[in-house]
């Protein structure tokens, strides 16, 4: 059984059907890239999976469990993590504090009350090293450069250790070298995690994607490997117009 099954998903915003009868499945350990022209409903689909938006119809099943009406923190506890398009680190907290918040294996209040704020320090140190932020551990996240902020976000996703990670344009604003390094990290992550990535950078998609789903007007237009997608006539029409 697929890890994530999306069936006949619908959402409407004041008459606009942002997602309109979407169906797809994601297998465990897969990197799935979501492509599509602007307004195709890619980000909305991620919002629906993580609970930021409530669907008006259809079903989302994660590891066999229906989650489409579940509160977002419950979905996160089940193992769904999300990286947003706009970098969203806690600017008033230090880098290591950000990671401690992200490391939320036991999100209960009693557990949190009986631990010091940085009790996760040892556990998150290797993650900091992996993204090259170990020298910035005590810096405020608000003082990081744009690139470092992106790395911190990725480090937070690793610390959260979700089984399914949803990424919205993870390489936006990155240099070619940084993008390549991100691709390496994604490849390493996919051993134990499933990733759904919305991305416009086609060279990045070529490097990481196991499978691609192309969306148009809220529904699936095509699905397959990169070669299949690049030769698909419907996709060319959707991108280039009639």
């Amino acid at each position: 059984m697929a890890q994530l099954q999306i069936t006949d998903l619908h959402v409407e915003f004041g008459g606009l059907r942002a997602v309109d009868g979407l169906d797809f499945e994601v297998e465990k350990g897969e990197i799935l890239c979501l492509l599509g022209p602007n307004g195709a409903g890619k980000s909305t689909t991620l919002d629906l999976i993580c609970g930021k938006t409530q669907p008006t119809g259809g079903s989302i099943r994660f590891e066999g469990m229906e989650i489409s009406q579940m509160q977002e923190f419950r979905r996160a506890r089940l193992g769904i993590g999300r990286k947003f398009q706009v970098p969203s680190v806690y600017k008033e907290l230090t880098v290591s504090e950000n990671l401690s918040v992200a490391r939320s294996r036991r999100p209960g209040i009693l557990h949190a009350l009986t631990r010091f704020a940085l009790s996760d320090g040892r556990a998150v140190a290797p993650i900091l090293e992996r993204v090259g932020l170990e020298s910035k551990a005590d810096d405020l996240a608000g003082n990081l450069s744009h690139g470092e902020t992106q790395w911190l976000e990725i480090a937070m996703l690793i610390a959260q250790d979700s089984r399914l990670i949803l990424m919205d344009e993870p390489t936006a604003g990155m240099t070619i070298q940084e993008t390549a390094r991100t691709a390496d990290i994604f490849r390493a992550l996919s051993d134990s995690h499933t990733l759904i990535v919305v991305e416009h950078d086609m060279s990045f998609v070529r490097t990481v994607a196991d499978r691609i789903v192309v969306m148009n007007r809220g529904a699936m237009l095509a699905e397959g490997t990169i070669a299949e997608i690049e030769s698909n006539d419907d996709v060319k029409t959707a991108y280039l117009g009639h």
Binding site: A76, L93, S104, A112, T114, R115, A117
Partner: peptide, 20 residues
């Protein structure tokens, strides 16, 4: 405590904290 840290995180961005 970590409880205090999570509250600071909530103060800054409650939505983000929910997604953890």
């Amino acid at each position: 405590s970590k409880f205090g840290l999570i509250l600071k995180a909530i103060r800054e961005d409650a939505d983000r904290t929910r997604f953890f």
